[in-house]
Amino acid sequence: MDILLAIAIMALGAVVLGAALGFAAIKFKVEGDPLVEKIEAILPQTQCGQCGFPGCKPYAEAIVNGEEINKCPPGGTEGVQRLADLLGREVKPLDAEEKPKSVAIIDENTCIGCTLCIQACPVDAIVGAAKQMHTIIGQQCTGCELCLPPCPVECIHMEVIQETIDNWKWKYPVVEMRVETTDKAAPMKEAA
């Protein structure tokens, strides 16, 4: 008799828990793969396609499916590092040369107004119309260089973003190696 009771209790427990799990599976269903979103948050969103995928999201999806993590040049070595930390993979050297952050500039005298670059820009950062001069909204340019190849007159070039007071950063404090130079400004900075 006791054993029947035990079986009944266990069975009841199984049914209750099963129902709870089933309910949770429906109620708290996660749409999409959260890992893709985490990876995408690390990728620089330049949508440049230098990784060989048509945008950052497809690359994030590919990484989840086993693609290498070192194919994003705009993300740089630091991006690789952060992806490696997130995914528990080994840090690999970047599969391309790391470039300083740049923006595209249209030489407005040469531009013929063909609109090809406007179509190529993944973030709609180019303003212009057919047979009208085009220009790039610098703040929105991601520096992906996708507008360079379609231009028939080669009037677009990349310009490295210069350091200004607004984007200047304090440097990592380094131990001064006592090298005899006339420039004494640097070691004195922390004299205070």
Binding site: P44, Q45, T46, Q47, C56, V123, T142, W170
Partner: peptide
């Protein structure tokens, strides 16, 4: 150093988010 790095990252993050939304909108 840490503060200005955090600010720079914040700016980059905002720029990336803006680029992403613009890309998706496109």
């Amino acid at each position: 150093f840490a503060k200005s790095e955090i600010w720079a990252r914040e700016r980059e993050k905002n720029a990336a988010d803006a680029a992403k939304s613009r890309f998706e909108f496109k």
